[in-house]
Simulated scan of single mutants.
Amino acid sequence: MLGWFGLPEGAPPGAADRILEALVRELSGGGLRLAGAVQVNLDRGQNCACDMDIVVIGEENRPIRISQSLGTGSTGCRLDPGALETAAARVAARLAGAELLILPKFGKQEAVGRGFCDVIGQAVLGGLPVLLHVPRDQRQAFAAFSGALAEEIRPDALTDWCRKQLTGAT
């Protein structure tokens, strides 16, 4: 099963990341075997873009910086696609034995078939439930990618959805 959630328009930046980080803490504390990653944004102060790190679940002391500094006045995308691919490879290497895969989001890289796409496909083919955030501007691409396999979940129901995936309850 492929579960996803969105946030209402106007949600504060980084809200989905904080929701997933709290969910991972809660589920890990309950002894569940999780694979995946969360994004942690590090505030660099007013007038500075945040630094974006991916923390692979189970490798908390080895964050991967996925943002790059482009300099003052730059307007290009700050994502380092190579670093994102490194994160995806490290997540893929940890899928064996997991009960649930949690990923930060289906973003622009995934919309063009990169990033975590292969990891998502591998998990779904292996019967491993997947949960991720889908930003509003990527929902059409996500629908094309996931077809009828995806289920939308309210943000306040994520814990229940995860537990149901693990117990088989409906």
Rank of each mutant, 00 (worst) to 15 (best):
G115R: 09
R33G: 09
F142N: 04
L132Y: 08
G29T: 09
S28C: 02
L100C: 10
C117I: 04
L95Q: 03
L132M: 12
A92L: 05
L125I: 07
I66K: 15
A83D: 04
P12L: 08
V134R: 01
A150D: 08
Q122W: 06
G97W: 14
Q122A: 10
I54Y: 10
I64A: 14
P104I: 06
P63V: 04
F142E: 03
S67P: 08
L79K: 13
Q68I: 04
R163I: 02
S67A: 09
A93V: 02
W4Y: 13
G76K: 05
I102C: 07
T159Q: 14
N41S: 14
G168D: 04
F5R: 14
W161S: 00
I153A: 12
N41D: 13
H133C: 12
A87G: 07
E99G: 11
R136T: 03
M52T: 11
G71D: 15
A98K: 07
V112T: 11
A87L: 00
S69A: 15
G36I: 00
L34G: 13
A15P: 04
I19Q: 00
R139T: 00
D160L: 01
V130F: 08
V38F: 00
A37Y: 08
M52G: 06
C117N: 06
C77M: 11
K105Y: 07
L100P: 12
Q140R: 08
G168F: 03
R18S: 09
N47T: 15
S69Q: 10
P155T: 08
L125D: 15
V124L: 15
I54F: 12
L27F: 01
C117L: 02
G29A: 06
E21I: 01
L166F: 03
L149S: 15
A93I: 02
V56M: 07
G30V: 01
V24K: 14
P155A: 09
L84T: 03
A83Y: 05
L125E: 15
P155L: 08
E26I: 05
A37V: 03
A111T: 06
V24G: 04
E85G: 03
D160Y: 02
A93F: 04
R25Y: 07
A123P: 15
V91H: 06
Q68F: 05
G82T: 05
P135S: 05
G121I: 06
K105C: 10
R25L: 14
W161D: 02
D51C: 01
F106Y: 11
F5V: 11
G36T: 04
T72Q: 13
H133S: 14
G6K: 09
N47D: 15
